[in-house]
Design a protein around this nucleic acid. Sequence first.
DNA 1: AGTTGACTATTTAAGTTAAATTGGTCAATA
DNA 2: TATTGACCAATTTAACTTAAATAGTCAACT
Lengths: 249, 249
Amino acid sequence: MPSKRVEEVQAAGEERSKRHERAQRILDAAANLIQRWGYKKTTIDDIARLAGVAKGTIYLHWKTREDLFTALLLRESMEASVDILERINNDPKGMFLSNLMKHGMYVIMTRPLAKALFIRDVEVLGELVRSGQEDIGLISQQKMIAGKGMLELLRSKGMLRTDQSIAIQMKMYNAIFMGFMTVNQYLPDELQLSLEESTESLAESIRLTLEPDKTVAPQVLQEVKATWDQLVQQMNKLLNERLQREIEV
Amino acid sequence: MPSKRVEEVQAAGEERSKRHERAQRILDAAANLIQRWGYKKTTIDDIARLAGVAKGTIYLHWKTREDLFTALLLRESMEASVDILERINNDPKGMFLSNLMKHGMYVIMTRPLAKALFIRDVEVLGELVRSGQEDIGLISQQKMIAGKGMLELLRSKGMLRTDQSIAIQMKMYNAIFMGFMTVNQYLPDELQLSLEESTESLAESIRLTLEPDKTVAPQVLQEVKATWDQLVQQMNKLLNERLQREIEV
DNA sequence: AGTTGACTATTTAAGTTAAATTGGTCAATA
DNA sequence: TATTGACCAATTTAACTTAAATAGTCAACT
C-alpha cells in the first residue's frame, strides 16, 4: 500500500517540521533574552515561558542549558554567514577582499548577537565566551570567507598584492578589521564613526593596503566567483549538517 | 647679607629636590604595585612601606589616594610621550605619519602602565579607567603627536593624501592603530604578531592607506620637523607645568 | 620645621544561615 | 505518544553579622 507509506512519510515530515519550528521558537526566545539579560541571568524557565512551551519540552531538544545556547550561537553564526554571502553575491565587486570585509563588518555590526560573539562580549555571553571561541565563533566562517585558500586564489588572479607574505596579509586584515569593529569605544564623541563611514573606511583601508592598483577584467572576476562559490558550497554543506545535528539533538 | 640669602635659597632648593625625589619614589612604588595587584588592591600602606616612608608622608604630597594615582598616570603619560618623541627625533623619516604611529605603538606596548592606560585595562586601573580618560589618558599626547594641526601640516607638505578628508583620516588611523594594538587578543596562536611585526605592519598599513607615493625631499622633511618641534615644545611646556602641579601637592 | 605611626571612622571582606531560584526529571495528562 | 508542570536536589542569592582592612588625621616626636 503505497498510499499508506506516503501518508506516514508526510506525517513524519510534518512532525519533523513542527518540531523544527518549535526549536526555532525556543532559540528565538533564548536569543531575545540573552541580549536583554545576558547568558548568566536568562533562565530556562524564562525561555520556556517566552517560547510558550513547558520547561520539559526544552529538554526534548537539548540535553543541557549550555547545549541550547551553543545551538543558538551556532545558528547565529550560520545566519550571519548566509547574510554575508548574500550581500557578497549581490555586489558585482563582491569578490575583492576589501568588499568581503566590508560586507562582513556590516552584517556583524547589525546583528547584536553576532557582534557579541565576535568581540567576545562578556556582558552578554558570560562564561560562553570561553566555549564559543574556535568552535562556534564565526571563526570557521571567517576562515571560509577569507581564509588562506581564498587569499591564494585572489593573489593568483591579481586581486591581492604579492609583495607581502600571505601570513602578514592575514594578520593585517585581521588587525584592521578588528580595529574598525572596536575603535568607537575608544574614541571621543567628535570622532565617532557611523556604520556607513566605518564600513566604507574599512574597505578603503583594506583596498589600499592589500590590493594592487591594476584593474581586474570582469572575466577574471567571474572566474574567481565561480571557484569561490564551489569553496563556499562545500563548506556550507558541512556546516549545515553540523547545525542540524546541534539543533535537533 | 647676600650670603645668607644664597644659603637660604640653596637650602630651599635642596629641600625641594629632596621632596621631589621622594615624590618620585612614592610614585615608583605605586607604579610597581598597581601593575602587580591592580588599582583596587594596592593600598596606601603598601605604597608607603615599599617607598620607605610613613603613611602620613604620602598625604604631604597628595590629598587623596586618587590624587596620587592620577599623578602616577599623568607621569606615565608624560614619560611615554618623551620616549616617543625621542624615537621620532632619532628616526630620519620620523616625520611620516606611519612612523609617528610606529614609534607610538612601540613605546606604548613596551610600557605596561601606558598600555593599560591606552587600552583602558580595567584589571589594572579599576575605577580609574573612568577618571583617566580625556584628561590624562595619553589622549592629549596623541592630539599633540598626531592631532589635527599635525595632519594639516603633513598634508600641506605632500606627506599625506589630500583626497580624503582630515576627519576621515583621523578616524582611519585611530582604527588601524587600535586594531594593531589589540588584535592579538582575538587571534589564535598561529596568527599572533610579534611586537616587531606589529609595528612594521602598522606602519605599512598607515603608509599605504594615508600617505601618497611620491617621495619627499629631505629639505621638506627638515621643514616639517622644525615646525613640528615648535608645536611639540609649546605643548610640552604646558604639560610639564601641569605635571609639576600634580606631583607636588 | 618636617616626619611619623598610632588612632578612628568607614569601607570592604568573610562567614553564616535561611530563603529563593534554578537546572533537570518523570509520573500524570491530554 | 508527545507534552506538561509539579517536584526535587543542588545551587545561587539575599540578608545579616562579624572581623579585618583601609583612607585619612593628628598629637607626639625628631
